[in-house]
Each structure stands twice: as structure tokens, then as C-alpha cells.
Design a protein around this nucleic acid. Sequence first.
DNA 1: TTCATTGTATTACTATTATAATACGCTTTA
DNA 2: TAAAGCGTATTATAATAGTAATACAATGAA
Lengths: 121, 121
Amino acid sequence: MNLTIDAKSPLPVYQQVIQAIKLEVLSGGLHDGDLLPSIRDLAKLLKLNPNTVAKAYYALEAEGFSENRSGSGSRVRVPAGRRDALRRAMLESEFRNFLGKAVALGFGLEDINQLAERIKQ
Amino acid sequence: MNLTIDAKSPLPVYQQVIQAIKLEVLSGGLHDGDLLPSIRDLAKLLKLNPNTVAKAYYALEAEGFSENRSGSGSRVRVPAGRRDALRRAMLESEFRNFLGKAVALGFGLEDINQLAERIKQ
DNA sequence: TTCATTGTATTACTATTATAATACGCTTTA
DNA sequence: TAAAGCGTATTATAATAGTAATACAATGAA
């Protein structure tokens, strides 16, 4: 697990934890059935309060990403098929988000292609 | 001015106002020297408290985007040259941001190109 | 000059976020 | 069975964001 927390971000810390774990699952670092680090361990690792991490774990379970069991830990519950669908959906969502901003700034597809070509190098 | 506020966004409302006005300037809807709506008018329009809008106006002035004068209002202070530079910088920043997320999800340039082709239609 | 409008400032209240310190019940393992 | 580790729950405190009500001083126009 490679997650970093930005205390200065406007995004609440517990939501950053949620996003980081989702990303870990979607990118293939964590698989269906894998055990997440314990709340206390992750809190110590990220230098957060256990309650903050617990809030994230609770939300992940509520979203159907994981299953929490007192005594035995939290396990990822995202079958490969669903994971792939979510991964593609997230890419498209992020792309549309970027595209929207670019259009709002008055740029067109040509400008974006030009930029992409320049960035590649 | 065409700005909408999302109360559910994790981004604080006053920062949404800042972004919306910056976008209006960068996209050419507001020009150097133009008068911004008064704090009270904009607050009424967006159904926000005047203090929230005032906070945004104060920040915009601190960033050198505008100049506030008691009694006569707030005026945009972004010469065309600077505006164009900022506009390009913002596009590149947003693109790099998107690219970073795509890579984190395990996608490559090919996947992005493929998606872009599909989105076009 | 007078008056409406402007940005600015102050104080108070609420909700959310995050931390902190505990405690409880469940599960696993020695 | 006993102990350690797990998620869960409660209560308290602090900081930030946002609302709300008001007042002040500067500006510009009637």
C-alpha cells in the first residue's frame, strides 16, 4: 500500500483514505478477498487518529468495497469484473472532467492534442 | 457571469467562487478593468452570505486578480498577456492532473487516445 | 450636501472535520 | 481458557467553514 495524505488538501482526510484505498483496488494493488491493514496500523502508518481511518473503513464497507468484521479485520470485496468496470468508468469520468474544464477555458480538441504531443516528450 | 455553486462539493464555497471568477476572466467573459458584481448582488444571486463572497473577493485581490475599492466596487486586474499565460498554464495543469490519475489507474497513452476517439462521437 | 451603494470589519452561532482517550464485544491463536 | 488484536462505539475538545446580523468608512451620483 502506497498512500500519502495531504493535510492541506480541501478534501477531508478520511475521504483521501477512501480514495487511496479505492485506487489501490482499481489499480490492482489490492485484490478481492485481500485483508486491509488494521485500522490501528494504518492510523499509525499515516499518522492519523484511528477514528479517522475507522470512518473511512466504515464508508468503504457502506459502498460495497469491503467487508468489516470485528476481530478478524476488513477484507476487499470487489470481484475482478466489477473492478474492471469501475476502473474504466473512473478513467472516463476523469477525462470528461478534464475536457469540461478545457472547454470552459475556451480550448478545443486541437489545442488538447497539441498539448498532449508536447507533453509526451 | 455564469457561475454555479455546489453546496455538496468538498471544495469550500468561497473557493468555488474564486475559481468561477478566475475561469470567467481566463475564458474571456470578464476583461481587465471590468467591474465585478457587488458582493451583496453576487451573494443574493448565488444565495450565499455576503461574508462568503467577501472572503472570495478578498482572496482574488490578494492574488492580484482584482482590485477592491470601498464605495466603487471591485475591478478585474488581469492584462491580456498575463491572462493568456495563465489560461495556457491552467490547461496544462489540468491535463497533467488527469494524466496522473490515468497512470495511477494503470492506463497508458494508448488507452487515453482510444477513449478520446470514442468520446468525440 | 445627502443618500444609496460599495468594500470592510466585528461578533456570534452552527455544522463538519479531526483529534483524543477510552471502553466494549468479537475473533483468532497460543 | 486467556490474551492479543480486530472493528465498533462513546464522549470531549479544537479548528475551519459558513451563516447571520450589524456597523463603519469610502465613493459617486442626485
